[in-house]
Design a binder for these strands. Structure first.
Lengths: 346, 346
DNA sequence: TTGTACGCGTTATCAG
DNA sequence: CTGATAACGCGTACAA
């Protein structure tokens, strides 16, 4: 490719280059770029237009940001990028940024406090215009500082009442209740709850609490079965599951999984135990990953409005950027949807 | 929370603030920050340390970037963030950035040429230090310009020989051959190939070509069955699949899916048709999403080293950043791994 | 309608 | 060891 040598290495073209090429001053070019076309003579405008085109000029966002005080960047800090839930939310955020000419800085913390903190510091350094965070909940003091710096922060999925930030999440109580009532309606019981360790995560907590309440009120079971599944440890599910099922002979047991990560492991365990779903055991799970419709002829799910959550969060950031900064923080709770499939139907 | 009013709105603290608080000049603080500690008196160092801590100072990356000519940002342009393949690669890129103090600007193009181009322009404006791109292959002239600007570009998964960029992908021919030979070994045949429309995408093309060759050489079938599955159109799979299976009575038919997106739809169709895998039909697919181990008692897969691909790509960008800029572009082809499960075993 | 000059927050050069 | 001072590329009063 001789092309590679033709123009050796091109120093990035600046506004000054454009100005010179067009025979005008930087100021005039700057005005053109910021759309103040009414202040320009047709002649100047055309010359600038051509120069920009020919030189392939792109305004330097670092310089521009430095001057204007906004970077055009939004930080998205997620706890686990491997979780399909996260990806769908991210899609929403990203699309919404795109339509506003902004970019997403993606940060995956692996549910680790130190990483979360480090990332937030990096994002601060980049002077992000907004932050959307699926937080571990372990950096609250640190996060609070962002409030003083007047940068819009939106919490996602996990509430932290101690923080004065907008929060977008789903109505976990309604969702959990719907799932459980459906199981009970179908004649299932006892029901076991599988969740990741609560660790102060609000969504996990709310779902679990609601499970407890529903079990007590509607099934008269004050001490329902709850299994916490530690992350990334294999085969901690099979034992409890086997145990649960063996104590439930003569009835119609069911399992409820608090998210897709746990559900995946439960499904594996059920398969290994040779269980027939829904004949031997019913199943309902949170989240609606690809495979939920596939396994056991379809698993009944509580589908969260993931994409919409992302869109909503980013819109909120945008509104705050437009001067709504000092309004009180609001809690936006979106409804989840129960999708009934074969796994929970007699 | 009275805290919110205590310090009303804090102007971002600059290096000058630190300098004043520490009773030294900006220069000295700058030295401290860039780790030239050997040039500082213990006294000065301590005072700066304290000032930085107390004020919560974070160097402004925009200013720093403007001055140093590097932004600390890497652009990652992906064709489809919904594809688990993409997410795993992204994880690799992200981890590798993290360990180098860099950040990822994530851009999802939805396989759309215009969006890809727009995004690359935005990334250019941000003066990204590197670009990793899972390209549509439709903006080549445009991409070529990046070569002149001396910014490291790494192509991912999809080769574009016309472009002078490093490329990280898998050995598709070896992988495809392994998958097909395995099916033939197990006594399967005829074999049908399901793929997304080729659209000039090298990975799709290589897999398909290899399929053709293997079929001709080893099975003596010059015109094997190929089905192109258009994206996001429901139930275009069921018809062809049914047709294929009906013409294959008396033999042991199998299907091979060129990626997880297509495979998902094939699985749906197979379920709907009430097929028993592997008894009625064998199956092998590319990619190893969560659900592949679950469905049909496990689907045999060609697992791509996705995470490693991300890591490799980012390492390459890094090397180029460190002055290896003018070395010729290299092609890095990683091996895929055949994981045999129930779906392809007699 | 256009241009001059300054500053955004850093780093680098140079002189002490 | 330390500190002025000049850029980096851009936007914007202010002046013309």
């Amino acid at each position: 490719m001789s092309d590679r040598c033709e123009r050796p290495v091109r120093r990035p073209v600046t506004i000054l280059d454009v100005a010179r090429a067009a025979g005008v001053s930087k100021t005039t070019v700057s005005r053109y770029l910021s759309g103040q076309v009414h202040l320009l003579s047709d002649d100047a405008r055309h010359r600038i237009e051509r120069a920009v085109e020919e030189l392939g000029y792109r305004p330097n966002q670092m310089a521009r940001g430095l001057k204007r005080g906004r970077s055009g960047l939004v930080g998205m800090v997620v706890a686990d990028i491997s979780n399909p839930f996260t990806v769908d939310v991210l899609r929403g955020v990203e699309d919404e940024c795109k339509s506003r000419g902004m970019n997403v800085l993606l940060c995956n913390t692996n549910n680790d406090q130190a990483q979360e903190r480090e990332y937030i510091e990096m994002l601060q350094a980049h002077r992000i215009d907004g932050l959307i965070i699926h937080t571990t909940g372990l950096n609250n003091a640190f996060l609070r500082e962002l409030a003083h710096q007047d940068i819009p922060v939106v919490l996602l999925d996990r509430k932290v009442p101690a923080l004065p930030f907008d929060t977008v999440c789903v109505d976990n109580r309604q969702a959990t209740r719907a799932a459980l009532m459906h199981l009970l309606d179908q004649g299932f019981g006892p029901i076991a709850w599988f969740t990741e360790p609560i660790d102060g995560v609000s969504s996990r907590k709310e779902r679990l609490e609601t499970f407890r309440k529903v079990m007590e009120h509607h099934a008269g079971i004050p001490e329902p079965l709850i299994y916490e599944v530690p992350a990334r440890m294999p085969s901690t599910v099979e034992g409890p599951l086997k145990n649960f099922l063996s104590t439930a002979t003569g009835s119609r047991p069911a399992v409820c999984c608090a998210n897709a990560v746990v559900a995946l492991r439960v499904v594996h365990a059920l398969s290994k135990l040779g269980m027939d779903v829904p004949r031997d055991v019913g199943m309902v799970m949170f989240d609606n990953p690809d495979w939920a419709a596939l396994v056991f002829g379809g698993i009944t799910v509580v589908e969260q409005p993931t994409y919409a959550m992302g869109v909503t969060a980013m819109r909120r950031v945008w509104e705050r950027m437009q001067g709504q900064a000092r309004l009180p923080a609001s809690l936006i709770e979106l409804p989840a949807r129960l999708i009934i499939r074969r796994s929970s139907v007699r």
